[in-house]
Amino acid sequence: MRIRTLTLTAASGAALLATAQLPASASGRPQPPPLEGSVRAADLLAKVSSCAQISKGKYRTDQGAPAAVPVCGKHGAVFWKADMDIDCDGQRTDSCNEDTDPWFQPDTAFHQSDGKPLRSDTLPYVVVPAVSGTWDYKAAGIQGGGVVAVIHGDQVLYAVVGDTGPKAVIGEASYAAAEALGINPDPATGGTGPGVTYILFRNSKVSPIESHDAAVSLGERLAKEFLQSN
């Protein structure tokens, strides 16, 4: 779980920001496809252009940043617009471990069907803020394995709710989610600034949670229903 501070971000400087937003081809990773399924990013974004706030307060994108991000409600979903920090917790791998991630934790809030923690470098997942007086994701119909449409630029990625984070911070996803969107997935220096939209579909659940194919199939159906009902 990454808890980035403004001090760290500022110290990294413009060079870090440029690295975090390099296109995938420039960093040696294959360029991701612009879509998963047939629902366009522009169509989803048009439905979340305004916010009916359901959280009792707002969240920070990093420790020390102003609290400026509300959780918003729509028919069948909740959403927020934030940055993307990298969560590399869960199973130890070559990409995610104590050496690559200063904030590494060998567990995730939600587990695979075999009981093991999730694997951040292969499973696209999103981190939700832990339950607090600001917002209770459980009361909003969001659960582990719930489907999330993550939008960055013209790309749509279907992910699952896979971990919980700090009570006051929002905007975090797994190594695999960042990589699929062409965002630098390095847990120490990666991520990207504002411009990421997270749409979480209420009362949805992928089974098994570790199946990305199942997330895409269910996500595509729920995204189409979301467009029709909002």
Rank of each mutant, 00 (worst) to 15 (best):
V39I: 05
L200R: 05
S174A: 02
S12D: 13
G144V: 02
E210P: 01
I209D: 03
A26T: 08
D89E: 09
Q91T: 15
T5S: 01
D94L: 13
F201E: 06
A67H: 10
V196H: 09
L35T: 10
I3V: 10
G153R: 14
D107I: 02
S27C: 08
R2C: 01
I86E: 01
A20G: 14
P66W: 11
K167V: 12
I54Y: 08
I209F: 02
A68G: 09
G115C: 13
P117D: 08
S174P: 03
V160W: 11
Q143D: 04
G133V: 02
S25N: 11
A15V: 14
C72W: 10
G146H: 11
E172S: 05
D83V: 01
S132A: 12
L35D: 12
S211C: 04
S38G: 04
A10R: 14
G145T: 04
I151L: 12
M1T: 09
G182L: 08
V150H: 06
A20Q: 15
A159H: 11
A11R: 15
A15M: 12
G190E: 06
G146L: 05
Y59H: 07
L45R: 15
V39P: 01
S207G: 03
G195A: 07
F226N: 09
L123M: 05
A149Y: 13
G153N: 07
A82C: 06
A42W: 10
H111N: 15
A10Q: 09
D62F: 00
W135S: 11
A215S: 02
G141E: 10
A18F: 11
S27R: 15
D87A: 00
T197Q: 07
D101W: 06
S217L: 07
N97C: 05
T93M: 05
T122C: 00
S25T: 14
A10Y: 14
S132C: 09
N203P: 03
Q155E: 00
